[in-house]
């Protein structure tokens, strides 16, 4: 199988040379096969989101290489990478434009596919496509396509963002604790929609989560990060044998420190 994402010895240090110097990624290497669904766990400040930032191009890495589907993207800007990488954040307000309607938001996301600036309005064909996709969410949004997105709830907005990120099938989908700000019932719903979309499109996906149960039940591979490094990488047989208590135990051993992160403990 071909490699979808390759990170080759990626390093990143914030504020180098100052008192606030912080090494956030140390010689990090990671390879994802096409269709991999990787869950990522680790305490706060261990470099999970920084890893995503390095992949989606919020900054250039200090050294190392980033490759997406065989293409070197190390020095591409974030908006240039966004053509092929979809990303969701914890904050459900981050991925949508509140003063624009649902269909206008979708139309923007769809622009990754359609080039050519001189068209007026949204075509009937596009509107039908948007309606179908919205209906898949089962949130009744397909009947509110002319409503402003600012009127939707957090869960609805996150589901819409997910739809927008995958409307034009991306090569890679990055989910950064995208259900953490939602109530449990809504979180489950959005997670189910995520599963469905990822499976149906055979997406390559990375998901950061603080829920160890989700980390093991979703996807086909789990990695644990600490101090900017990958300290555990399990898949296949080893992963199916893994249980939540064992994983927590491992966290102890590998990171050599007590679990000080309440959210991980509580997420059992």
């Amino acid at each position: 199988m071909s490699k979808m994402l390759v990170l080759d010895q990626v390093c990143k240090t914030f504020n180098p040379g100052s008192v606030n110097e912080k090494v956030v990624l140390t010689d990090l290497s990671l390879e994802l096969e096409k269709g991999d669904f990787v869950t990522i766990i680790g305490g706060n400040g261990t470099g999970k989101s920084t890893l995503f930032n390095a992949v989606s191009g919020n900054f250039y890495v200090d050294s190392g290489r980033v490759e997406l589907d065989g293409q070197d993207i190390t020095f591409l800007k974030d908006y240039q990478r966004a053509n092929q990488i979809g990303r969701l954040f914890q904050d459900p307000l981050k991925g949508t434009a509140p003063n624009m309607t649902i269909e206008e938001n979708l139309s923007l996301a769809y622009m990754r596919n359609t080039k050519g600036a001189l068209r007026f309005g949204i075509s009937a064909k596009e509107r039908e496509l948007f309606r179908q996709r919205l209906a898949m969410l089962d949130l009744g949004l397909e009947d509110r396509m002319k409503s402003k997105v600012g009127l939707l709830s957090g869960g609805q907005r996150q589901a819409l963002t997910l739809l927008m990120a995958t409307l034009v099938t991306p090569k890679l989908l990055l989910l950064d604790e995208h259900t953490a700000a939602l109530d449990p019932a809504t979180a489950e719903k959005v997670l189910n929609i995520t599963k469905k979309i990822v499976e149906e499109n055979g997406l390559t996906c990375m998901m950061i989560t603080h829920n160890i149960g989700d980390a093991l039940s979703l996807g086909n591979r789990t990695i644990m990060m600490d101090s900017g490094k990958i300290i555990l990488d399990i898949s296949g047989e080893e992963r199916s044998q893994m249980t939540v208590p064992k994983l927590l135990e491992m966290f102890h051993q590998k990171s050599n420190k007590a679990l000080d992160n309440d959210r991980i403990l509580l997420a059992k």
Binding site: A82, K94, T96, A97
Partner: peptide
């Protein structure tokens, strides 16, 4: 309205 979303739409 949302600058981040614009770059996310490439």
């Amino acid at each position: 309205d949302n600058r981040d979303m614009v770059s996310a739409s490439s």
